[in-house]
Amino acid sequence: MGMSVAFEGDARAAATVKLAEEQALVRSAQAGDRLAFEELVRRFDREVLRLALNLVKRPEDARDIYQESFLRVYRNLHRFRFECSFYTWLYRIVTNVALDHLRRRTSRREDQAPVPEEAEGGTRDFFDRQPEMRAAANPERHLLGQELGEHIATALDRLSPRERMVFEMKHYQGLKLRAIGDMLGTSEETVKNSLFRATRKLRASLDGMR
């Protein structure tokens, strides 16, 4: 019990130091320190890229979202007033950029096709569409197979951009609904409803696949 309290105390102290460091970095970056800005980028960019990649699936699109997001952060950093955490502020920007991207994609019919055709006219599965990932051993590939991957991609494409964003942030970024609401500029109740709708649609689409 005593050790547990001490551990919690240490964790809290570490979090406080980390926050103070982060604020110092933001202030330096606001004053024009490029290295401080790059350090901030390195603290968060892997998560940003993971979010983008799992939303849009194509590495080149994820790269666009990554770049556009951090450029907007760079351009607007002087507006950040420490009224929320830097993480929340960053994610407001990232989610806006990603939602814009998803909406544009939804409006383009050619991008709506869940599986792009190969030059030869055949189709490729989800994993084949991500050449960078092939080098890493992925045991799920053997289990899922082509049909399952396509079904999941199709099911995810049926969600609205906002539903997809909420589902992704909740289940894979591990964020609380309230935090997601802060980032998306909406209420917790609205986010909850989006999560319900997303889950219902996915359940209906993937019924029989489990």
Binding site: V41, R42, D45, R46, L49, R50, L53, N54, K57, P59, A62, R63, Y66, Q67, F70, L71, F126, Q130, E132, M133, A135, A136, E140, L143, L144, G149, I152, A153, L156, H171, Y172, L202, L206, M209, R210
Partner: peptide
């Protein structure tokens, strides 16, 4: 089921993004 379809960004993609940025 959906977790099994997750994609992790690899080091090359991340490095490319950082360089472009």
């Amino acid at each position: 089921l959906l977790s099994s379809n997750r994609t992790e960004p690899d080091a090359a993609l991340l490095a490319g993004c950082r360089a472009s940025l």
